[in-house]
Design a protein around this nucleic acid. Sequence first.
DNA 1: GTTCGACATGTCACACATGACAGGTAGGGT
DNA 2: ACCCTACCTGTCATGTGTGACATGTCGAAC
Lengths: 184, 184
Amino acid sequence: MSLTHALLGLLAVAPASGYELTREFEHELGRYAWQAGHTSIYPELGKLAGRGLVRVMHEGARGAKTYDITPQGREELRTWLLGPPGGGTTVRNEQVLRMFLISALETDDQRRLLTRIAENTARAAAELREVLAADAPPDRGARAGFGRLAGEFGLRQNDAVHEWATWALDQLAVDAEQHSAAAY
Amino acid sequence: MSLTHALLGLLAVAPASGYELTREFEHELGRYAWQAGHTSIYPELGKLAGRGLVRVMHEGARGAKTYDITPQGREELRTWLLGPPGGGTTVRNEQVLRMFLISALETDDQRRLLTRIAENTARAAAELREVLAADAPPDRGARAGFGRLAGEFGLRQNDAVHEWATWALDQLAVDAEQHSAAAY
DNA sequence: GTTCGACATGTCACACATGACAGGTAGGGT
DNA sequence: ACCCTACCTGTCATGTGTGACATGTCGAAC
């Protein structure tokens, strides 16, 4: 399961509590790569501890448990990351699905939806550019490096979708032209 | 559920059998947007028929049932596509997860994985460029328009990831330089 | 005439994810 | 003293997705 490796990956960078891990999934990680709520994270941490891939490093205030990756956990993570990408590579993205289904709409609706997508991606890209420009940012914990990698990915991702939407809008315009020309 | 709308979207473009729909998910649709196997598609078609969103248009050889979208189905699809993108927008992509976790690896492994990603995306992009260049392609059924939209998306997607991987490799090189400079 | 691959549909046990529910603590403001 | 917010962990019913299994047809090659 991928959640297993997502958690191992986060813990490999720095120890964290279940709560902190849950927060990580609310940012770029959950937005572009893999979603998870605390209701799957807590039980999964328990299972990982049972398998000896992580361990409870410290129990703090408010019942907080800080988890740490073990050498076996690191090994498992490395194997998975460097292993064959072949396997049952899960892909599931509702936004992208919407984009693919655009051709099922009438032309007006297509234009409307594509315009919205173009605007949203432009805004998201601008925001990311701002965050990234504030270089060596106010350090979102020990995961600053992680955040930068993710931010740069998100930026390119949004730019790519923006360009795609713009291209699709152009196509619509071209088609409309040809249509009215054919009316002669 | 998104599978519901994926099926409605496909049927909105042209009627198809469960088997044909299953095949659609093996191409760009399943690769970039939403995965599904026949074991979820067949039951879902049954449910959709029960809700009156699709209907069996024709029963052919080998027990094949051709499904067609109904007006209610079209309406449901439109509502979903144009509706608020807010809801529980599912995101789940194992490949992207791997990329986000790269910082959990040692430098050598990072370089190895990034290089592989750069190569893979370059190859995928080249293949797509070839397919798209053969314009008005040998018509993958009535879904040619669908395929083009998806192909252009895939192309930009792969280019974006390629650029990201290249950037990340550059960063690694820069870091290594600074490190050796600091050794003085 | 048989074998093989593509066509075509389906069930079921099991694993996984989500949302609703539940309970409790520490710190800061008023 | 009280309240509110953020912190922090957990369970459970319900819905969804996956892989293994099961079944049968049609056409083409051998």
